[in-house]
């Protein structure tokens, strides 16, 4: 984050514009296109469907009975993931604080003395 009084030249408004311009002029990357992102998501969905169906075509060796349920790992993974992320989101309301809660100083390297 740029701070007032910072001596970093890219923090000047003029430099900002120049940087934006240079980013616009850059070559376009494959991932820059939203259509390609959609492609990745669809590919992921198809892989998931195939993996789910794979459960019907091999004999599963497990230690527990519930491992034999079709797609046990698939939905256990999906639900675990959602539970973790959505619970954490709620926990954030409880324990989230402003960045300067403990320390006014930044943990970025800007205020570090040169020791390289």
């Amino acid at each position: 984050m740029s701070q007032p009084g910072s001596d970093n030249p890219t923090d000047q408004p003029g430099a900002d514009k120049a940087r934006d311009q240079s980013i616009r002029d850059e070559k376009k990357w494959w991932l820059d296109s939203p259509a390609n992102i959609k492609l990745i998501v669809w590919a992921l969905a198809i892989v998931c469907v195939l993996l789910f169906l794979a459960d019907f075509f091999y004999h599963k060796h497990g230690h527990f009975d519930f491992e034999q349920w079709p797609g046990f790992y698939a939905w256990y993974g999906f639900l675990s993931y959602c539970t973790i992320v959505l619970t954490a989101k709620q926990i954030r309301k409880l324990i989230g604080r402003d960045e300067s809660f403990y320390e006014k100083e930044d943990s970025d390297t800007n205020n570090e003395l040169d020791n390289e």
């Binding site: 992921l44 993996l51 698939a74 256990y76 993974g77 992320v85």
Partner: peptide, 30 residues
Amino acid sequence: ITQLQLLMFSALAFAVLFISGLYPPEIKSV
């Protein structure tokens, strides 16, 4: 296969949560 199921469906969950805007945003905080 079971490990791939676990991981890919976790990735799918991420895609669903991120696209639907439910994934917690990265915000400046401690």
